[in-house]
Write a protein that binds this DNA or RNA. Structure first.
Length: 819
RNA sequence: GCCCGAGUGGCGGAAUGGCAGACGCAGCGGACUCAAAAUCCGCAGCCGGCAACGGCGUGUGGGUUCGACUCCCACCUUGGGCACCA
């Protein structure tokens, strides 16, 4: 160490600042989007720019994705790694209301802070393509997306019961209601009836489901696939028809258990069901009306929460069970939901828990039609027998004795032949309500005209700009604050020119984020939402890494919007994300970080103290990336010591006399093993073990006083994805003048990953009693001889009969002895 | 209630049928130092033993296997998701 600058040791602050400037000046992170031969679109979920700044959880996610992008670049891809800000929505608006600031002022200042932080951690971001969803040049195209759906009949307005948050004073999607409370503020949600815009995502349910199992289109984390499948909620059953006596009318029900129809002893309709009036007898009219009013007042969530006492009332009417031909009473009850199936059920109290509870409460007939393994037709039912896999039918006419599974198909076929039913596939998925009666979002581009009706804003008049108003607070009216601004609200009808009014709802934030990945590569273009050529080059997204909290919202909506644009002929793919990997969650003291818990860790001070590179390694070394971990700052000195030691080693490698010494055979083997382990670990996002492998190599080099320039150079390269500034500096010290990220990823020679001798364990009766070192080519006989010669082994074999010898080459030798 | 995931030293974790505890943190002993920090060398699962060595050991109980952290069954704990979906 003769250079005084080197003897000062590793100085992260200066080095990181130096490289951040150089990357920007030399446009190191800006791939040529028009001339890519091996494009790699490395996407991560863009953040919502909160006032608090990025927390450790964000940084964990971004660093993990960035490591992958840098790795892929060194493997020879042109990597496009864009970043942006998901800045519309209730979150920002509520914060603005609370602090008395206008979101239009708050958001730019938050974005500046986020930009500073994201730069500081050394993300390989293409800042020339940064976007914010609140920018009119972006939401112009969000509105355009709405119009594409509108044109195709996939956007419609419907009056209906919706989730209303009394604190946020807005409608929430079902997905935003968690256990009856508002996802944002925790207030209990109420039911309100409003006109809302919906997207027909249910039309796409079968495709959204089918593609999940198509490996040609999607390679996703299994947990995310499963979450989407559960959310789509496909079930197969039958739609059966029950005639109304002395009438042409009939009621349709959906059931997954047509095999139990002989036990359908009554029917239940949702209180809102359109046939309730027709089936209600005069004597019951008043009681039914009272019940319906009460159900209407109840909030949606209370109605949809299980384990509540069942309430209901008889309509006085009857329908005919098509299997038994008998008249059964019709009830209404709020445990039956209008928006699933047909809004009516055949109640089989013997074999459905809810129907059983209802029948017990109101004294209705319970009939057993399925007998379990040790049961007969007359075995009393103390609770519903719901198992549909191991019973046979009883009290079911000519189907008696049939197993339930087969009977379901047989009965459906029989009823179908009689004109009383069909098989039916049903989804749990709802249409997507995109209306928000709020201010901070893109106005829905629709105009209402007395003469022309609902008129879409012509595309050449987009964007419908969100006016800068001061009184953006929502009120109780259920109408957006925008309606209070006459000069914005009233416009000439685009079709006839008459005085018309604007739609005042803004769209859901999830619409902003459902297409942003299409915008990035063409974000500088004002004339198109996405350039067709660049889209063909860069999309679908090569790798998407993000949190599983978006498994069913953002990721499903993005897939839906992409499919719609594909069907419109604008995209040649229907799945936007070829590969998706869910990362884990960073928790603090065993709990998710949140402001209310007061356990949010702000990364800035750690980066200040230890440097961004040390912090990145620390986060990636914490545990498996896809599982997350508990944030404890106790261990952060380890990664820093690791870098300090490599810094010194690079110094040694710069001296020609030691650097070019021959590489000892053991080190050669370790080196190639490390290259393999690190490469394969990075590919699978096993960052913690990849770092451990680098540490092992470092330890070996230090123990053997080896500072081979070749080995040290590759060590620095393999470290580069984790510690980009540090690696650049070392790369420069090693005499290179271009960025390390344009260097070629080290390769290993498979033959050199195996040593010619190997140490194997020797067991006697399954217990390890010693080890022997052998040639890799040693035969079982040679191994056995060597093992028997080992004193510690011989001692345990003494006086015992060896029944068998298990030989696992390269691993172990086991003497099986008489017990 | 249903569906996923996870339980391994003082701590984070490694090993997915073959020498359990790699790597790191914290700890202990030593060197350097007036001293401390930093750094370097060494020790380190638990129990017994001066030691050689022996026994035990991956949430609990069973099972499969020559061999189980790993596979199977049951249970416990815990994290997450979905929940009157017919």
């Amino acid at each position: 160490m003769t250079d005084p600058a080197e003897s000062a040791g590793y100085q992260p602050t200066a080095i990181e600042a130096k490289w951040q400037v150089r990357w920007r000046e030399q446009r190191t992170n800006e791939p040529d989007l028009d001339h890519a031969t091996a494009p790699f679109y490395n996407l991560m979920m863009f953040p919502y720019p909160s006032a608090e700044g990025l927390h450790v959880g964000n940084l964990f996610a971004f660093t993990g994705a960035d490591v992958f992008g840098r790795f892929k670049r060194m493997q020879g891809h042109q990597v496009f790694e864009p970043i942006g800000f998901d800045a519309f929505g209730i979150h920002s608006e509520n914060h603005a209301i609370k602090t008395g600031q206008h979101p239009a002022e708050l958001i730019p200042s938050n974005i500046r802070n986020f930009t500073r932080q994201l730069t500081r951690v050394g993300g390989m971001f293409s800042w020339e393509h940064v976007l914010s969803t609140t920018d009119p040049s972006y939401y112009k195209w969000t509105q355009w997306v709405f119009l594409q759906l509108f044109k195709r009949g996939l956007a419609y307005k419907k009056k209906g019961a919706v989730n209303w948050c009394p604190a946020d004073k807005t409608v929430l999607a079902n997905e935003q209601v968690i256990a009856g409370a508002c996802e944002r503020c925790g207030s209990m949600v109420e039911q309100r009836v409003l006109e809302q815009w919906y997207f027909r995502i249910t039309d796409y349910a079968d495709r959204l489901l089918a593609n999940l199992d198509d490996p040609g289109k999607m390679d996703w984390s299994p947990s995310t696939v499963l979450a989407q499948k559960n959310w789509l909620g496909r079930s197969e059953g039958a739609e059966l028809t029950f005639d109304v006596p002395s009438s042409e009318a009939s009621v349709r029900v959906y059931t997954t258990r047509p095999d139990t129809i002989f036990g359908a002893t009554f029917m239940v309709l949702a209180p809102e069901h359109p046939m309730v009036d027709m089936l209600t007898t005069p004597e019951q009219r008043e009681a039914v009306a009272t019940y319906r009013r009460a159900a209407g007042a109840k909030d949606l969530v209370a109605r949809k929460t299980g384990d509540k006492a069942k309430t209901g009332i008889a309509t006085g009417g009857t329908v005919i069970n098509p299997a038994t031909g008998t008249e059964i009473p019709v009830w209404i009850a709020d445990y039956v939901l209008m928006d699933y199936g047909t809004g009516a059920i055949m109640a089989v109290p013997g074999h459905d828990e809810r129907d059983f509870a209802f029948a017990k409460a109101y004294g209705l007939e319970i009939v057993r039609v399925v007998a379990g393994p040790d049961e007969v037709a007359s075995t009393p039912l103390s609770e519903a027998y719901v198992d549909n896999a191991s019973g046979t039918l009883v009290n079911s006419g000519r189907f008696d004795g049939r197993p339930t599974g087969e009977a379901a198909a047989e009965i459906t076929a029989w009823l179908a032949a009689e004109g009383h039913g069909t098989t039916k596939v049903q989804y749990r998925l709802y249409d997507w309500c995109i209306s928000r009666q709020r201010y901070w979002g893109p106005p829905i581009p629709i105009i209402y005209c007395e003469a022309c009706g609902t008129v879409p804003v012509p595309e050449d008049q987009l964007p419908v700009e969100l006016p800068l108003i001061e009184d953006f607070r929502p009120d109780d009216s259920g109408v957006s604050p925008l309606a209070r601004h006459a000069d914005w609200y009233f416009v000439p009808c685009p079709a006839c020119g008459a005085k018309a009014r604007r739609e005042t709802d803004v769209s859901d934030t999830f619409l902003d984020s459902a297409w942003y990945f299409l915008r990035y590569p063409s974000s500088e273009r004002a004339d198109v939402p996405f350039d067709p050529v660049r889209t063909r080059t860069w999309l679908p997204v090569t790798s998407y890494i993000g949190g599983n909290e978006h498994a069913v919202l953002h990721l499903l909506y993005s897939r839906f919007i992409t499919m719609v644009l594909h069907d419109a002929g604008m995209l040649d793919f229907e799945e936007p994300f070829r590969k998706f990997r869910a990362h884990g969650l960073i928790v603090k003291d065993g709990a998710k970080m949140s402001k209310s818990r007061g356990n949010v860790v702000v990364p800035d001070e750690y980066i200040e103290k230890w440097g961004a590179d040390t912090f990145r390694i620390y986060l990636m070394f914490l545990g498996p990336f896809q599982e997350g971990g508990d944030f404890r700052d106790a261990g952060i000195s380890g990664p820093r010591r690791f870098l300090d030691k490599i810094w010194d080693l690079v110094g040694d490698a710069c001296h020609p006399d030691v650097a070019n010494a021959e590489i000892h055979h053991d080190i050669l083997i370790k080196w190639h093993q490390t290259k393999q382990r690190v490469t394969e670990g990075l590919e699978e996002l096993h960052y913690n073990t990849a770092i451990a492998a680098l540490m092992e190599l470092l330890n070996v080099l230090r123990e053997t006083n080896c500072s081979s320039r070749e080995v040290v150079t590759s060590l620095v390269q393999m470290l580069a994805p984790f510690a980009p500034h540090f690696a650049e500096e070392c790369w420069e010290r090693l005499g290179h003048t271009t960025t390390i990220f344009d260097s070629t990823w080290p390769v290993w020679i498979p033959e050199l990953t195996v040593d010619d001798t190997v140490t194997i364990g020797v067991q006697v009766g399954g217990k390890t009693r010693g080890t022997v070192t052998l040639s890799v080519e040693a035969t079982a006989e040679q191994a056995e001889a060597a093992a028997r010669a080992e004193e510690s082994v011989a001692r345990h074999l003494d006086g015992r009969t060896v029944r068998k010898v298990i030989w696992v080459p390269g691993r172990l030798l086991n003497f099986v002895v008489e017990s």
